[in-house]
Amino acid sequence: MKPWPLLLLLTAAAAPSEAPIEVDVSGVRSAQGLVRVMVCPKETFMKACPWSASTPAKVGQVTVVVHGVPPGHYAVQAYHDADSNDKLDQNWIGIPREGIGFSNDAMSHLTRPKFTVAAFDHGTVRQRIAVKIRYFLG
């Protein structure tokens, strides 16, 4: 037997398994635009996150599947990008004009959620979590 097949087998067994996270996003007010979901480690929470996905918006609930997430400690942030401009629109003092939500329903009033409140552990199997979108303006 050649050594490389054994090496490939050992390498595959040692690599952490990446598994999708299914995010059920509820509270979507309209079918305009997209619902965007980001999976974030603590270092990038409330910023650009390494794993993301989107799906067309529809009134009520949508499911967004984020693929390729390795095991770790993460938080999910989601928003209803109603105008499909790939950013969370805010007013002049920073209040979101579009609906936003976080894992573990971590948002309290108009303050930024803490990673520790929104965080959850993700393993090597498909995981499903819920996020409720909230609208503050309009």
Rank of each mutant, 00 (worst) to 15 (best):
M1T: 11
P3V: 09
L9T: 15
A14Q: 00
A14S: 07
S17A: 14
V28K: 11
R29C: 15
A31Y: 11
G33D: 01
G33C: 00
L34C: 05
V35N: 09
V35R: 09
R36W: 05
V37Q: 03
C40K: 02
C40D: 05
C40S: 07
M46G: 15
K47N: 11
C49L: 02
S52V: 03
P56E: 04
A57K: 09
A57S: 14
A57M: 06
V59R: 15
G60K: 03
Q61G: 07
V62G: 01
V62R: 00
V65G: 10
G68K: 00
G68S: 02
G68M: 01
V69S: 00
P70A: 02
P70T: 01
G72D: 11
H73C: 05
Y79N: 07
H80W: 06
D81A: 12
S84P: 12
N85S: 14
D89G: 10
N91T: 04
W92T: 13
W92M: 11
E98C: 14
D105V: 06
H109D: 13
L110C: 04
T111Q: 10
T111W: 12
R112H: 12
R112Y: 06
P113W: 01
K114M: 12
V117H: 14
A118G: 11
D121R: 10
Q127G: 14
Q127V: 04
I129R: 05
A130E: 13
V131C: 01
K132V: 10
I133D: 02
I133A: 12
F136C: 05
F136N: 04
F136E: 03
